[in-house]
Each structure stands twice: as C-alpha cells, then as structure tokens.
C-alpha cells in the first residue's frame, strides 16, 4: 500500500484530507508542522505528501526545500495545499519542488483529480 504524509497545522484539515486519501488506498501519516514532517520523512520516506503552506515552527516551503535536499527526498510526490492561491504563490511552490498544487478549500473530487494528474492514482 502506498503511503501519504499529510502536513497541516489544522487537526480538522488533517482528518478530512486523511479520510479522503485513505479512500484512495493510501496509508496515512500525519504531521502538524514542517519540522515534524521532516522527521517523519527521515524515519520513512512516504510516496506522497499533502503539504500546507502556513504552519508554525517550519512552514511548507521551507520543509519542501529541505526535503528535496534529503537523501531520497526527491522521491515523494508533493502536492501543495494552501489558501495562498494566487499565481505568484503557486509559482513559488512549484519552483521549490512541488509536483501539484491544490487551492483550499478542497473536496474529495479535487484531491482525486490532482492525485491522478501526478500519477498517484
């Protein structure tokens, strides 16, 4: 079974996204900020990461840049997921190594469509 790390400081968002992505046949791991997420990746690199932008301790962009420098860190498919959804922010996320971008709010169809775009489902 593929695994997906969900990184968001909102417990509600993690639960909602987790439910949707579990239905797409992923094993779910959660992290509340970029630092926790980096530790989770060092323990076991996931196949996919759903990544929030604004979080305490370490934000999504800093996490993503750090991840891509880690050993095996280019492997996970990273889907950014943020309310920062103007073209400049999206562009910055993509240049920092994201594979796809979901604009919040999302629903199950959006997650499925975006995961399909990057070959996860």
């Amino acid at each position: 079974m593929k695994s997906c790390l969900i990184v968001d400081d909102s417990r509600v968002v993690r639960k909602v996204a987790g439910r949707i992505i579990r239905d797409l046949q992923f094993e779910i791991v959660e992290a509340g900020d970029g630092k926790d997420a980096l530790e989770a990746c060092r323990a076991k690199m996931p196949d996919a990461i759903l990544l929030d932008w604004n979080m305490p301790v370490m934000n999504g962009i800093d996490f993503l840049r750090a991840l891509r420098r880690e050993q095996g860190g280019t492997e996970p498919v990273v889907v950014f997921c943020s309310t920062e959804n103007d073209a400049e922010h999206i562009g910055e996320a993509m240049r920092s190594g994201a594979n796809e971008f979901i604009m919040k709010p999302f629903d199950a169809d959006i997650i499925q469509s975006k995961f399909a775009e990057v070959g996860l489902v």
Binding site: E100, F101, K114
Partner: peptide
C-alpha cells in the same frame, strides 16, 4: 470557479492558460 479549475486541469495547465 475554484472547484471547476481543479478538476481535470493540472496546475501547469491552469497557470499557463488561465489568469486569476
């Protein structure tokens, strides 16, 4: 709208062919 452009369109296609 926000929901329409996130179903079936990759983010690359959205940025290339649409403006917000």
């Amino acid at each position: 709208n926000h929901f329409d452009v996130q179903k079936g369109l990759s983010i690359h296609r959205l940025l290339r062919h649409f403006s917000r």
